[in-house]
Simulated assay, not measured.
Amino acid sequence: MTRNADHTEGDPFYHGTRADLKPGDLLSVGHPSNFRGKPLSWIYFTQTLEAAIWGAELATGDSRQRIYIVKPTGFFMDDPNLTDKKFPGNPTKSYRSRDPLLILGELAEWQGHTPEQLKAMHDGLARLRAEGRDMIED
């Protein structure tokens, strides 16, 4: 189902990552995902800073964590990895698209999670991986 008309109008879209990009660049499908390293056929983004922070903090790699303000360039839909599976409805305002996201700018200041919160999230993801339940519906 498309969310183009149903997202919260006026709120910015974010993408958390470690990729080094600049305004005018496009984020597109086919690059390794933040979490698994394998290329995905969707690009993921959100309208909540909290979800974008997790994206940046959990992204693999050694580069600096970044949160970009992005603009979808085409059709997008709810992220089925979160919506109605983990969180009824779409409280994380998480979406995905096969069309590129235009980088509008970078969020200069944001507060990350505590070391304890990060450890708990990493431990939970490791548990899912060990159980074979860390799948991304692509």
Results as ranks from 00 to 15, higher is better:
T2I: 11
R3C: 10
R3W: 08
N4C: 09
N4T: 08
A5E: 15
H7E: 14
T8N: 08
E9A: 15
P12N: 13
P12V: 13
F13D: 01
H15Q: 08
G16K: 08
T17H: 08
R18P: 11
A19W: 15
L21C: 10
D25N: 14
D25E: 11
L27A: 03
L27P: 02
L27W: 01
L27N: 04
G30A: 04
G30V: 09
P32F: 01
P32A: 02
S33V: 09
S33P: 04
N34L: 03
N34E: 03
F35V: 01
F35K: 00
R36V: 00
P39F: 00
S41G: 12
S41T: 06
Y44V: 03
F45S: 08
T46S: 12
T48V: 07
E50H: 09
A51F: 01
A52T: 14
A52H: 10
A52Q: 08
W54P: 02
A56C: 04
E57H: 13
A59Y: 10
A59C: 12
T60Q: 13
D62N: 15
D62C: 10
S63E: 15
R64H: 13
Q65H: 15
R66Q: 13
I69T: 11
I69D: 00
V70P: 00
V70Y: 04
P72Y: 06
G74S: 04
F75M: 10
